[in-house]
Computed example of a mutant assay.
Amino acid sequence: MAMTTVAKTTVFITGASRGIGREIALACARQGNNVVIAAKSDTPHPKLAGTIHSVAQEVEDAGGQALAIKLDVREEAAVTAAMAHAAAHFGGIDVLVNNASAIQLSSVQDTEIKRFDLIHSINTRGTLVCSKAAIPYLKQSANGHIVTLSPPINLAPHWLGPYAPYTLTKYGMTLLTLGLAQELKADGVSCTTLWPQTTIATAAIEYALDPKLLKRSRTPAIMADAALAILTTDDQSLSGQSLVDEALLRERGVTDFEHYKVDPECEQLYRDLYLDR
């Protein structure tokens, strides 16, 4: 697969104030990139560390150029304005990382419709809104990418039954991205999804699943490294694929994954949702 450097690339990341989004931002910054930190978190949270401004400072300290934008991906006009602002500020947009997401692990019967409306509006609809707004700029890039953090579609009943509402929104993100791969093929824009092999130590695991899983998880760094592997591929060879972080990195020659563990002593990492092997 052809490779190129990521330097001087402008990367627009949603949900970038903490967790995986922040880690991807810092990884891109270390390559000397322009990074747009787009998230709702513009003031400190009592329980969750990180704001768009603190991450912007970290990006600058890491060697990148930062632009912090307070953004709710549900607001179409705000997203359109944010893309225009970023493109004007940095001279274009080369990469969109659809990282913003909401989680709700409950069955149809136990999910309030207003809660489903929320996760759908952030996950599926937010991915569509951001992608649509970014496309005009990505078409102008020599190496345009849309990377969406969503899983391979697994229709096994044991994944569909327990929490169909959330699954519907995440699979919707994947279907949208795979569709965009075909829609934008002639425009030279690569569209892929990325999902972790194991759970990643983030607030979502701590508060939405089980804090005990943190020790059985990997750090967000593995997702950042996998994202860089995608962004440094310039021949569209990955476009239209649903990628898993460990498998992609192994394909690129990585053999040691021990340093990604939260707990170096943990021998049984927790496999992430929707992955059976």
Rank of each mutant, 00 (worst) to 15 (best):
M3S: 09
V6G: 05
T10K: 03
V11G: 05
V11S: 02
I13P: 03
T14F: 04
G15E: 07
G15H: 01
S17G: 08
S17F: 03
A25S: 15
C28V: 12
C28Y: 09
N33V: 07
I37Y: 08
A38H: 02
A39M: 09
D42L: 06
D42V: 14
P44C: 08
P44R: 02
P46T: 13
L48E: 15
H53Y: 13
Q57R: 15
E58D: 14
V59K: 05
A62N: 01
G63H: 09
G64M: 11
Q65K: 13
L71N: 04
E75K: 04
E76G: 08
A77E: 10
A77W: 07
A78T: 02
M83D: 09
M83N: 08
M83S: 07
A84Y: 04
A87K: 06
H89V: 07
G91K: 07
G92Y: 04
I93L: 02
D94V: 10
V95H: 00
V95I: 01
V97S: 03
N98F: 07
N98V: 09
N98I: 10
N98D: 11
A100W: 01
A102R: 12
I103T: 10
L105K: 08
V108M: 15
Q109A: 12
K114R: 13
F116I: 08
D117I: 05
S121H: 08
I122G: 03
T124Y: 03
R125Q: 00
L128T: 01
S131T: 13
S131H: 08
A133H: 09
P136L: 00
Y137P: 10
Y137D: 02
S141L: 09
S141P: 11
A142V: 00
T148I: 13
L149G: 00
P151H: 06
I153Y: 02
I153F: 07
I153R: 03
H158M: 06
H158K: 14
H158A: 02
W159H: 13
L160D: 00
G161Y: 11
A164C: 13
P165A: 11
Y171T: 09
M173Q: 14
M173F: 00
L175C: 03
L176H: 14
L176E: 07
T177F: 07
L178N: 06
G179K: 01
L180M: 01
D187E: 13
S190I: 06
S190Y: 06
T193G: 11
W195E: 06
P196H: 12
T198R: 13
A201D: 15
A201H: 12
I205D: 08
E206S: 14
K212Y: 13
L213Q: 15
R216Y: 14
R218P: 11
I222Y: 11
D225E: 15
D225S: 15
D225H: 15
A226N: 15
I230W: 12
D234R: 08
D235C: 04
S237Y: 06
L238P: 08
S239L: 02
S242D: 14
S242L: 12
V244Q: 01
D245Q: 05
D245G: 04
G253Q: 04
T255D: 06
D256N: 12
D256I: 10
H259P: 02
H259C: 00
V262A: 05
D263R: 07
L269D: 07
L269I: 01
L269C: 00
L273T: 08
R277Q: 00
